[in-house]
Design a protein around this nucleic acid. Sequence first.
DNA 1: GATGAATGAGCATTCATTCAT
DNA 2: CATGAATGAATGCTCATTCAT
Lengths: 214, 214, 214, 214
Amino acid sequence: MDTKTYSEHIPAPGSLKERQRQERVELILQTAEAVLAEKGYYEMSMDEIAARVGIAKGTIYLHFPSKEDLFVALFKRGLLSFLEGIRQVAGQPLPARDRLKLILVQAYGDQRKKQSQIFMSVFSGGNLRRETIEKQFSMREYFKKLADYISKILEDGKAAGEFDDSIPTLVMLTAFLALLNRPHYEELLGENLLSAEDLANQVGRVYFHGISGK
Amino acid sequence: MDTKTYSEHIPAPGSLKERQRQERVELILQTAEAVLAEKGYYEMSMDEIAARVGIAKGTIYLHFPSKEDLFVALFKRGLLSFLEGIRQVAGQPLPARDRLKLILVQAYGDQRKKQSQIFMSVFSGGNLRRETIEKQFSMREYFKKLADYISKILEDGKAAGEFDDSIPTLVMLTAFLALLNRPHYEELLGENLLSAEDLANQVGRVYFHGISGK
Amino acid sequence: MDTKTYSEHIPAPGSLKERQRQERVELILQTAEAVLAEKGYYEMSMDEIAARVGIAKGTIYLHFPSKEDLFVALFKRGLLSFLEGIRQVAGQPLPARDRLKLILVQAYGDQRKKQSQIFMSVFSGGNLRRETIEKQFSMREYFKKLADYISKILEDGKAAGEFDDSIPTLVMLTAFLALLNRPHYEELLGENLLSAEDLANQVGRVYFHGISGK
Amino acid sequence: MDTKTYSEHIPAPGSLKERQRQERVELILQTAEAVLAEKGYYEMSMDEIAARVGIAKGTIYLHFPSKEDLFVALFKRGLLSFLEGIRQVAGQPLPARDRLKLILVQAYGDQRKKQSQIFMSVFSGGNLRRETIEKQFSMREYFKKLADYISKILEDGKAAGEFDDSIPTLVMLTAFLALLNRPHYEELLGENLLSAEDLANQVGRVYFHGISGK
DNA sequence: GATGAATGAGCATTCATTCAT
DNA sequence: CATGAATGAATGCTCATTCAT
């Protein structure tokens, strides 16, 4: 333990104060999210976040003990949000392939969910900050969950005769995970970016049927 | 302008001086590559590079006007190396699917080619440093080439009856590009990382035949 | 001006309110004393004091306009406490040398009197915070008193034939004052710290008889 | 080991570069010494030191890895300087009491030696920064030396019949060490501060003969 | 050309103090 | 009166970049 908080106030959960605090924290998180998305971890400065929120720098430190902690909070939020999306999809009474497609859609964009995006980008961003995150909470457990949700869908699909049960689930999973990163290539190649849905459809089509001729 | 060194004095191309300069530049690039791979852009310091090369910090600035320029040089190198790998594969007298699998292998690892790795990691690392790079040279042109090589293979495949010619090449291409990022999930989920080849096989299998039952 | 609280409203001296205020102030002083003794001025934080007392940080500022003022109040308290100890000793019907020895004991330790300790430590701590203190109240007057008490004892001793009256009282005083600082050397050199009394005895012996052979 | 120096340059001991470096370091030390003496550790800022020296802040960090290190260097310097003074005095062919008096003079002032002063003030300044110092080098060993030099003189004195050999040397030493701190009382009490020599004479007189009447 | 000491803008973090509730 | 969230000036430290030698 390193923190030197002396005043550990535990306010009533529903009180006005507490609600205001929550709002403040939310505002900071949203702003930081935007800055992080724009500039990345190293170029996101506490000064800028504070300025954009319209508060003093010190105020951020009232809610997050350090830049790293703020970042981890952001990442965790993204991860949980992403996971929650998947959980909901996984439980829906739809054919396995439709569920998978919905997951692709979520991963590819769904602009409403910048949170997921943050998660995805950090996530796929190589070794960037991984160490930092690990120090604070175990991602493994959450990734296990993620993998479990997807594996479950895949197995549902096999059971329902939708998917070829001669292919090991793990292989299917691996390929699917590889597809989750939205390719950055597009921005570079092309004029018009595909919508999350269109992209998911194209990718999904291949995922399900492959490209081979008969 | 494409050259990144800014020596005003252009020595005779084959002279001793010039050869030594080239070696020096090469040494810097290789070292920086290693550091970049280990620590990422922001934690790669000019001091460390200089120390590892065994030259003075100022000397780096004789060859690269800034850290960003050095980075861009590195990235470009990686991109060209990757592209060259693809060009070679594309030209080989192999079935299209084998050629595609070789490309996957190259993207997924091929530890001998740290250069490609650098390229891939930066590349898939979200917005990281993209701006910077764009300022210096147009990636678009190179990506166009990359896409062209792959599209060519896909069309070869269609012509040879290997691939389903009712699927637009662009769709195939999009899905293939989405697969090029090696998923980071592995490290998190699992015990044993797959070799580049194994991973390419699994992913390739799905890419070619899909996961659907008949 | 000597009072350090700046409440504009002066309540009836014996009222309940006033008594509670006094208690509050006393509690703050005691706590601050402890923190100051433990951590020193710069590492004593208003947050910690408030937390230890169990009040809000702002409340401290109701009674002390600034950290410096709080410190000065503490110092003054220590000084007065030390002075009071000396006053009591000075008035006792004991041989001069016994009274001096008691003063040494008080200066060297007397663990019960943390207040005196605070005073002594700040006091002997070089220039530390002197300016600050001077801005707020004149120590000179109190030191004059301190010197007067001791000089009086020394002169009592001369009159009683205990001390050599060919030595100017001022010289005796100077040497005595020099001895009042407990040497920190001990902690560094040695195993077992002497008790305040043992140290006073040894130092006193030399003070009274010197170290010369006959 | 924590340092991240990459370029560990080992220059020729007598080279011009090296001499310049020494001068620079010396200048920083002297300036820092002055600031430390004026303001104490916590209010000595790296900015101020740099400004006074007329260099950039970063330059200080070229020579001292942190503020703490700078401080420790300063303290060590003071300690060694003080010790060296004592060593020289201890070896002189003078009566023991004259040697002790010289040591008092040195401790009390000798304005030329601000270094010793720094040492003395930190030293007597309570717990201030002790921890910090200990982390970096063992003071104990040096204090042992200091105590040894003085003990040696005391025993010389006993052997020569100057001092009463019925008093344990340790007692003599303890009292002497207690006298080493120049009393701060003076500044407060009096108009005219005594010169280091006058003070040493007065204190010495009492130390040698005590204040008792016959 | 090399060198590496010097630079200084930039950044995370702390904490005494204020003031709206 | 009491509170404690908010403030923001201050500070230690880093590191890409420059330039005199």
